Amino acid sequence: MAAGGDHGSPDSYRSPLASRYASPEMCFVFSDRYKFRTWRQLWLWLAEAEQTLGLPITDEQIQEMKSNLENIDFKMAAEEEKRLRHDVMAHVHTFGHCCPKAAGIIHLGATSCYVGDNTDLIILRNALDLLLPKLARVISRLADFAKERASLPTLGFTHFQPAQLTTVGKRCCLWIQDLCMDLQNLKRVRDDLRFRGVKGTTGTQASFLQLFEGDDHKVEQLDKMVTEKAGFKRAFIITGQTYTRKVDIEVLSVLASLGASVHKICTDIRLLANLKEMEEPFEKQQIGSSAMPYKRNPMRSERCCSLARHLMTLVMDPLQTASVQWFERTLDDSANRRICLAEAFLTADTILNTLQNISEGLVVYPKVIERRIRQELPFMATENIIMAMVKAGGSRQDCHEKIRVLSQQAASVVKQEGGDNDLIERIQVDAYFSPIHSQLDHLLDPSSFTGRASQQVQRFLEEEVYPLLKPYESVMKVKAELCL
């Protein structure tokens, strides 16, 4: 049975990233139509530049190519590739079939990587351009969430054990800070992308030097003109047959890092959902379990974690691919890159769409948070109580021993009897502590235990987050809708 299948058929496997999760716009960027249309555009740009620099290419040939950029006979191309065992030459023939007058000058002087690699770089750039505003929107939604809850005390956790208090907004800023680093890295790697350009079979530009009869300047002009037509500021000066596969490492490393950030955020949300302090959106008709109707599973956060793990592992592909590119190139890269580049971007696209949807509907339960604080705060307040007693004339050592005994009794009630923490009640009825009984409410005010959390939130948002989001103001209103 021949390899390949009808990918629109229910009898043929289709990647869930495309069929179930990723956005239509990201799927289109990695589609065959987008790819092969870009090949034709690159052939047109090459012909236009070659004509401008004096090669015998007519206006009629150029116009014929322009008129057929979208006229792609995919069936013919597939048949040609089956016959020739070469995808680029299959599309040269297919393009030439609908451009008979231009057929002889299509791909003039070029090698397969002229269309293959340059198209990949265009796709990487455009895919990054799709991700950047999506990530900015996630940051914006979380920034709104953090600002609104900047002063809401909550129990902090280290080692997932109760620690000092923080605020809900401050905790959210930990998430935002990681995503801001990801946004900066995505922008950097996007701006650092260079075009492969017009380089020939081993990167020496020998074929173009021959076409222009040894004119170095025209060869350099050709490279520059096509690079500018493709919208790049610069091209690699040095290439082998391909652009260095280190570029793929750079791009997928940034995406993998984004995956790590999203995994951490969504894990926190899942843990908070278990504590009943916070939940992701839950639709009115949504079913959490087929057997347990009360369940409210954090399905979206779980999906993000599941896909983020996949995204983090994909960076190993370009690392290994770059390491086995012998001399000017081997074909070890080809099949692998067809999979890992598309999957990385479709996965990143999915987790950003999902995280935006989550961040637009996060639900906080202040009463649950308050109750958990009441359970733990008495123990945390013991040092403040000791200091207040010393100020009232008591002995630190005597007070410490009193607190120690009462704390152990209260802990026994919590752990052995399943009761509430009654340390404060014990202190309130103990005559030894009568000098500070009137101060206990103040000493137990949760806001006095959150330090500068709310001020940190305000400063972080104003100095770091809002300036970073400013270039994306025009796209901030787009909502994230999930079908599944």
Rank of each mutant, 00 (worst) to 15 (best):
A127N: 05
F236P: 01
H400C: 05
Y466I: 14
K224Q: 08
T204S: 15
G116W: 01
S151H: 10
R188Y: 02
N68A: 10
L341T: 15
L46S: 05
R85M: 15
V247R: 06
L468A: 13
V115A: 09
L258T: 09
I351P: 02
F95H: 08
P162A: 06
P16V: 14
H159E: 02
K402W: 01
V368C: 05
V315F: 13
L46I: 07
G104P: 14
L131R: 00
Q375P: 04
A136L: 14
N274W: 08
Q184F: 10
K391T: 14
A206K: 04
C304I: 14
D349S: 12
S31D: 10
E80K: 09
V315D: 04
Q439T: 08
R137S: 15
A2C: 15
S19L: 06
L469R: 04
V368W: 03
Q455G: 10
L174T: 09
R137I: 14
D191V: 10
S334A: 06
S207W: 05
P16L: 13
D349R: 04
M389V: 08
V413D: 07
V324S: 11
P24C: 10
L319S: 01
V405S: 13
G231P: 04
A136C: 14
G109C: 03
R270Y: 03
V315Q: 09
E473T: 14
D6G: 09
P56R: 12
I385P: 04
L275Q: 04
Q63D: 05
D73F: 10
V189W: 07
R404N: 10
R296P: 03
I369N: 09
E401C: 06
M278D: 03
F282E: 07
R188W: 05
R303A: 02
T204K: 00
G8P: 15
P24M: 13
L314V: 09
L17D: 03
A78Q: 13
I339E: 03
M387Q: 14
V262K: 02
F30R: 01
G418I: 03
Q428W: 13
Q286Y: 01
C180A: 11
L307C: 15
D73T: 12
F160N: 08
K479I: 13
A431T: 15
K284D: 13
I351G: 02
S9D: 11
F145V: 08
Q205P: 00
L311E: 02
R459L: 12
T119G: 13
Q458K: 15
K479T: 15
S301I: 10
E60G: 12
L275Y: 07
G214Y: 12
S306E: 00
L128R: 02
V413H: 15
G96M: 08
G231K: 11
S447W: 14
D178K: 05
H93W: 14
A260N: 00
